[in-house]
Design a protein around this nucleic acid. Sequence first.
RNA 1: GCCCCUGUCGUCUAGCCCGGCCUAGGACAUCGCCCUUUCAAGGCGGCAACACGGGUUCGAAUCCCGUCGGGGGCGCCA
Length: 510
Amino acid sequence: MTRNDKTDKIRVRFAPSPTGFIHVGNARTALFNWLLARQKGGVFVLRIEDTDLERSKPEYERNLIEDLRWLGLDWDEGPDVGGEFGPYRQSERLAIYHQHAQKLLEAGQAYYCFCSQEELEREREEALAKGRSPVYSGRCRNIPLEEARRRLNSGQQAAIRLKIPEEGLVRFSDLVRGEVEFDLKLIGDPIIVRSTGMPAYNFSVVIDDALMHITHVIRGEDHISNTPRQILLYQAFDWPLPVFAHLSMVMGQDNTRLSKRHGATSIDQFRREGVLPQALCNYLAFLGWSPPEGKEVLTLEELVSLFDLSRVNRAAAIFDYDKLYWLNRQHIKLLPRSKKLELALPYLREAGLVGDNIGPAEEQWLSQAVELLLEGVDKFSELPQKFSLIFDFNPEALDEEAKVIINTESARKVLKALVEKTSALSDFNYEVFARLTGEIKKETGIKGRDLYHPLRVMLTARASGLELDKFIPLIEEGARLKFPRPIKSSLERIREFASLLGIEPAGKPA
RNA sequence: GCCCCUGUCGUCUAGCCCGGCCUAGGACAUCGCCCUUUCAAGGCGGCAACACGGGUUCGAAUCCCGUCGGGGGCGCCA
């Protein structure tokens, strides 16, 4: 019995536990659900699975919602937006679970289990040691409901277990994996309600998915072995089965489960780094999926129209930062200039390069600078570092490469010539620079790298950076503007560098 | 240990279901060249894979069996 006849709207859900920051694996699951819903005009439900009271925290729920929204996902039903099948927080659905558990109890499909956790643990270990599957013995299976209730009333604690067939096969057709089957002999009666009265995961998901009319359960592969237990529950209630799709895991570079030591793994971290949400979604979508045509840089809208669950790969994927950052660069390029500035500003502020109030001229200049310096940047957090090319000028702290460049005879000649030619100047711009370098070239015969390289070092105190025809106009204008850290003009730089090197313009002794 | 899933370049993958079009395609990374006053970007090109062993077949990356590797699960966690 499947619910998914063509007339029904597709209803999918993302059901995270608020136990920490949302990581890329979960985000990918959320994205796939969302993509399918949006493509098919279906409904995307957000449900919070907070029945683990020890680990769940309200602020995690807020973070989670914030992260999902930042990614660009939205939901039609959820704890913050409501919906006709609410509440959408499991902690607020306890009465529903209780009621359904009672139903199973009355129908003889479930029973109270009085075994202590210590006993169970011991049996489990014994089974494992003997190489058997640790299946619950079924000791409490035949305690009559009346007797169980009496014991409960006298103060004993009990969990509730689902009574499942002792043998047989549970088979289901997974949308990404095909036919999957499990042997019931290897599955014990699962606990559906803990002795604390809280529902167990396998129980609450099924109740919620069924009551919320979820048609497609798309989740991580780590849930695949829960699926038979859940199917048994659907059957106990005589509910139609949803379609299942189990996504492979996302791994770290060393092919182990992605964790902190692999670098950034939470959505929140990527946001802070200055990775664009559309780039992250683009990358996440390519973890296990690929479009029929080769195009790889895709917007969210394109992902929505191209996505296809049947093209999802079955093998686990390793998270590749290089490719993510490459995609991010591509998406950054697509941004309009004003957006680039807007996104860059917080990073520049944090680095103390700009203040809170920016004048129009400064803003204009910054926009230009961001445009130029963003070239080849993986993520926005790298921008302040790039800006130091303009804001920091330290001829005393040259790196090895720069030192090598200026420590040749011809370099000395070039530098001395520039110092002399600029010594009387009070105005400078790129045209002047071009004219002077032309003269130097003619007078000394030095050209190409040998000419420009030393000049670059003199003006930037670095061996590499922006092209000088872009750099000089930028610092000349920047030097006239107001920034917390003033920008040195070309002439200031040349003179500072010269005095450090002990180059004095002829006819003008110290 | 048992169960389930999985195995194409270093990485993400196309191809696999419906054997020949595969001398296995693309992208990232890497290497080289070009462009360029440097770097980057861009352009061009190179290196690089069907885990292994058996079948089936005229023919196998594609079908079957086995081995090995990887992952997940075996909770009163989700």
